[in-house]
Amino acid sequence: MKIMELAGIIKEKFEKSILSSSVFYDNETIVIRKEDVFDVIKFLKDEQSFDFLMDVTAVDYKGYPDRNDETRFEIVYNLFSYKNNKRLIIKTLVDEKDLTVNSITSLYHSADWHEREVYDMFGIKFINHPNLKRILMYDEFVGHPLRKDYPFKKRQPRINLRDVGKNEEEE
């Protein structure tokens, strides 16, 4: 099935939900409205047999050339259909003012950890996620490291670190 067909099917079912669709280096991508994420992915899973959720990630587009900051984040869902051997990337735009999106944990078990990682790294909240908390960083950590405005080398130690410069015997 070609991307246009699939986009057409989704368009028939969910009016206005598709913002754009494209093929780039063999990756078929459909951008959908944020409100419809759950419904569209549910439809794709149930009726188009996209049974694997390979990955959920986000991209921070702050400062990306030729792009306005209003839609700062993009969430990328990477679906795979074992039956049809087909891959599909679903994207949605998240505004900086409203950093929430519907969770798809009830559709795929794997979404649990993937969404937690996106929350940890970008601070995007997933509504209806059962256990939304940091996964890779520790609770004391302030900020979200993969955002473009988090400094690359800003460390936040959990414990007091030794001063290695001093000679111990002199202390």
């Binding site: 390979m54 990955d55 990630t57 991209v59 921070d60 587009y61 990306y64 050339p65 990328v76 990477n78 078990h109 794997s110 649990d112 950890w113 993937h114």
Partner: peptide, 29 residues
């Protein structure tokens, strides 16, 4: 499946690199 999701802004450095590590979902389970 080990996947690389790379976003490029047309320069010499990638804008974003995401690895789809195979053992991440497994450890989640």
């Amino acid at each position: 499946e080990l996947g690389y999701y790379i976003v490029s802004d047309g320069t010499h450095k990638p804008w974003r690199v995401k690895v789809r590590p195979p053992c991440f979902p497994v450890t989640g389970a």
